[in-house]
Amino acid sequence: MPVPQHIFDPPFNVRRASHVVLDVTNLAAVRTFYENAIGLHVEDADSEAVYFRGYEEQQHHSLVLRKAKENACRRMGFKVGDEADLDKAASFLKSRGIAADFSEQPFQGRTLQFIDPLGYPIELYAKMDKRPHLLRRYDLYKGCHPQRFDHFNVFANNVQGTVDFYAQLGFRLTEYAEEDGPNGRIAAAWMHRKGNVHDFAITNGRGPRLHHFAYWVPTAMNILHLCDVMASSGYVSNMERGPARHGIANAFFLYVRDPAGHRLELYTSDYNTMDHDHDPLRWSLRDPRRQTLWGAPAPKSWFEEGSPYTGQAVHDPLFVADVIVAS
């Protein structure tokens, strides 16, 4: 299937993946997990919602937990360049027949919300309340010292369609996994706006669903320390996969599940892709190193389980990829 061409003058300027809004049935339990085990900083909280950020972030929040009747992902948030980009985005979406509405959201400026053609609920904003950054407040550090929000990874029933839509918006392909042969289909793709490996990753599977969201941590030792923290604080069963290293992105990682079942990746050691002539790296689906460089297999849950999006139906993938997995 075709690899998209980089678009350097998109219809509006998405700067980066910014935040995720999760619905949870047990707000207190999930808050405790992210605050005390993972170590995210609570910026604001009430009986209905909790707002977290990483130590390096000056924006008010990068993770929002909302009390709800079902566990789901409500929205994925991206930051755009300025207020004019919001109006450009609204015009672009309208021209494509995609309904989009401006909404008031706590601690954010004007926010444009829409559901993309693949079923992913997105919100765009240009301004968010700022807070003093906590990078040097080592007295506040807990868990694995999460610094900043890094990316989303989604299950997509139509990978090519998802790649093509986000390529229109200026997302650039950095790595992809493809079937061998002249008619090989793309089964996974990693796309970015901010100049590292990805802001948005797309994985073939039943979708639309959120596979995981990720925070960047300073070193691999922070991830190893988190394993000790979780094992000694009652969360050993919440560790799903890792620690290990992906071939794709070169990422040292650990995947964990919060008490609501949402999957979080703690992530470090990726690389810069900011040069305009950076070429995407192709991986064969027959190469198990793309998934786990060291050969450790992923659990079945990692391939099959994900968070539904609030109000969105889930569909089987258009094809089943013949994938070699680590063993």
Rank of each mutant, 00 (worst) to 15 (best):
H19Q: 08
R209E: 03
P10T: 03
E175M: 14
V197G: 08
A251H: 03
P208C: 08
H151Q: 13
V325F: 07
G181S: 05
F12R: 08
R245Y: 05
Y271W: 14
L224S: 09
R31Y: 02
R193M: 15
S62T: 13
G207C: 11
N204R: 04
L293V: 14
W190C: 08
R241C: 07
A126C: 08
A45G: 02
I202R: 00
R206F: 11
V229K: 00
M230L: 15
G247A: 14
R290H: 14
P297Y: 06
N183M: 11
D85Q: 06
Y267G: 01
Q147K: 15
M239C: 01
P218D: 13
V20D: 13
V30K: 02
R131V: 15
H198K: 10
S62G: 06
P317N: 04
R172H: 08
H60K: 10
L140G: 08
G39Y: 00
A321G: 01
S237T: 10
G181F: 05
D150V: 02
Y34G: 01
A28S: 13
A84H: 09
Q147Y: 08
T162K: 04
K94F: 14
V20K: 05
M128N: 09
P308Y: 09
S47G: 10
Y215S: 05
F107K: 10
A189G: 15
D258P: 08
Y309W: 15
A187W: 05
V256A: 09
D199Y: 06
D180N: 05
V42I: 12
G77N: 05
Y309G: 15
W216V: 12
H60T: 06
G97F: 03
A90D: 11
H315M: 03
R110C: 09
P243Y: 01
G207M: 10
R15G: 07
L173H: 02
A177P: 12
S284V: 08
G77Q: 05
R289Y: 09
S95T: 11
T25Y: 15
K194S: 09
R289H: 14
R209H: 05
V163Q: 08
P2N: 14
I186T: 09
Y255P: 02
E56K: 05
D277T: 13
A28Y: 07
H276Q: 12
C73F: 07
Y138V: 14
K88F: 11
L140K: 10
M191A: 00
L135Q: 06
R75M: 04
K69N: 12
T32R: 14
P259L: 06
L134S: 07
H6G: 05
P11M: 10
G109P: 01
P182W: 02
H6E: 03
P208A: 07
G207Y: 11
L93D: 02
D150P: 08
L65P: 00
D180F: 03
K127A: 13
D180W: 02
P288N: 02
K142Y: 03
F8C: 14
A214G: 05
K69Q: 12
R193P: 15
N153G: 10
L134N: 05
L40A: 03
L293N: 07
P317S: 02
I122N: 04
N238R: 13
G97C: 02
D9P: 11
R131D: 12
K79V: 06
G306K: 04
E35K: 04
Q5M: 12
V163A: 11
D150M: 12
Y141I: 11
T111P: 07
V21P: 13
H198D: 04
T25H: 14
S47C: 11
L134R: 10
A17Y: 14
I324V: 15
